[in-house]
Amino acid sequence: MTSALPTSQAALLTATKLNKTVHVGDQSLSIIKDVNIHVNAGEFVVIMGKSGSGKSTLLGLLAALDYPDSGDVELAGQTLSRLNEDALAVIRQRDMGFVFQSFHLLPTLTVAENIAFPLDIARRPDAARVDELIEAVDLGHRRHSLPNQLSGGEQQRTAVARALVSRPKIVFADEPTGNLDEQNANQVMQLLLDLRQKTGSALVVVTHDSALADMADRVITMHDGRIIS
């Protein structure tokens, strides 16, 4: 299934000759080897591959959650790999959204507060926007609940709302349906796609789920740290 959104030809996110090695004990493991990738504005890209193929590591590099050993990542013309942590933080606040497999909500903030968090740290509070998203993910009746009072599906819907509250240019999702049953998984993915359609955000999803791959504009397959298709 492909997205109904028209995809822009200009690349929003470009990664060139990315390499990443990790050290485990005395051993060095090359996780990402010479990867080149681009994501266009508004595009929905799925990254697939077996466990250990380097999908999540690649996502981390693209999302500026980690630095590559070599190569560059550019977002909207800005080279991320040369920026310091403070500058990267600003870019993550402003231009990126995240959805994780384990939801990763702040456990002591309510649903509303979790959703509002990205706007809060960017010093752009927008209560109306938060309310809009709470309703959009159908959590109006749970706005004051803590994450430990929510089901898995509700937690992930909260995470989706949080990812899109600041109208980011791009959303990164790492196995967003990995901890959900089929019904909730479908619901969450549909929400994510619908909401990002409104914001015009690009979406990069790492997944094993072939059903998700069918929804994507483009599928990238990884094997042993390299892109094979």
Binding site: V22, F100, S102, D174
Partner: peptide, 15 residues
């Protein structure tokens, strides 16, 4: 503290 630890990574982060 590495935000990348939130991702499902096979290998541990570099020490």
């Amino acid at each position: 503290t590495k935000p990348a630890t939130l991702l499902n990574q096979g290998a541990s982060s570099a020490v």
